[in-house]
Nucleic acid binder design. Structure first.
Lengths: 168, 168
DNA sequence: GTAAATTATTTTAAGCATAAAATATTTCGG
DNA sequence: CCGAAATATTTTATGCTTAAAATAATTTAC
């Protein structure tokens, strides 16, 4: 197949547009990171001060709260988007503290089931309530009627990034 | 001052609206966190694979790249929104590796000035180029005409959170 | 049936992050 | 001037995070 002498560029954008998009993408990333860092730092601080608890520990409990019959341990790193090795000491400590149980599966001795205890559930519910009100406090000045719009755009962003990651 | 028997609630929202707003705020936070985690994880992976470098180290260089005459060390934790103690070993290693210099101020011996070396600047520019194109790749599927809108909303969100944090 | 591949989980090594305490220097009040 | 407060930075203790290697159990292929 012959190519025309002055074939259009692969992208339909010209150099200046491309540069502008580049800059906008970088700015988007920096804003995203700034917002997350700001909120995460404050939530972490309050978790520590109020409950002497960390967010990763809370996140594990949050997953288990939705699963009355417990969860296969290997499901946690997938849902929380962290590495498996990372969870080992966190789960260890939650077990030690009596918030969750870890029982080997009878069918497959490689597998373990983690499950919230009554005590764990009680503690989690109390913390979750505070977590919600802290978030409400932090986001109070953001107009409520813009929440859903922003959520939608972030969903779209997440989907776009996911697509890019899965393509290769 | 007497209160009317059926005084309106402090908030103008009724219970159901309040609950809906609560849920939307939580969802917004989870989306925000998911987007950031997704992008950050991929950028970190590529920094490590391509350059054997970490993002915190890159972030320090990025700040210094804009300051030809260097920066007071204490300015870094403020700009990067991390604790001062955190930066000590990172700066140490960047000095060891020859990317930056750290010189005590002659006027105030508590203060130190950090400044990028020629080698550091060269290395940073190379990495920054890749960083930009990785971001472009990750965000390629997100419509370019929505970038500025999302940036604006995130700016607003950041401002709202900042206000809430500064008020008390 | 058994060796090899796969799967679930833990361990290890390295680095980032924070809070709180420590150190060193400068500035301020009297 | 000199002790106290303030400022800049480092140290310490604790915990999160990853990647890669190790361990253990199961499944698959022959």
């Amino acid at each position: 197949m012959a190519l025309a002498k002055e074939s259009p560029p692969v992208s339909s954008k010209n150099g200046a547009d491309q540069e502008a998009e580049y800059r906008a993408q970088t700015r988007l990333w920096l804003r995203l990171l700034a917002c997350t860092t700001l909120i995460e730092g404050e939530l972490r601080r309050r978790f520590r001060e109020e409950f002497d608890f960390t967010m990763p520990r809370f996140d594990v409990l949050a997953q288990l709260d939705r699963e009355p019959s417990g969860l296969v341990l290997g499901e946690l790193p997938k849902r929380l988007m962290v590495s498996a090795g990372n969870l080992t000491p966190i789960v260890d400590r939650l077990v030690e503290d009596g918030y969750i149980t870890r029982t080997p599966s009878a069918l497959d001795r490689r597998v373990q089931i983690v499950c919230m205890t009554v005590e764990g559930r009680k503690t989690f519910r109390r913390m979750a309530k505070s977590h919600g009100s802290w978030l409400a406090e932090l986001l109070a000045e953001f107009p409520a009627d813009k929440l859903d719009g922003l959520i939608g755009e972030l969903d779209q962003l997440k989907g776009a990034v996911r697509d890019s990651l899965e393509k290769p």
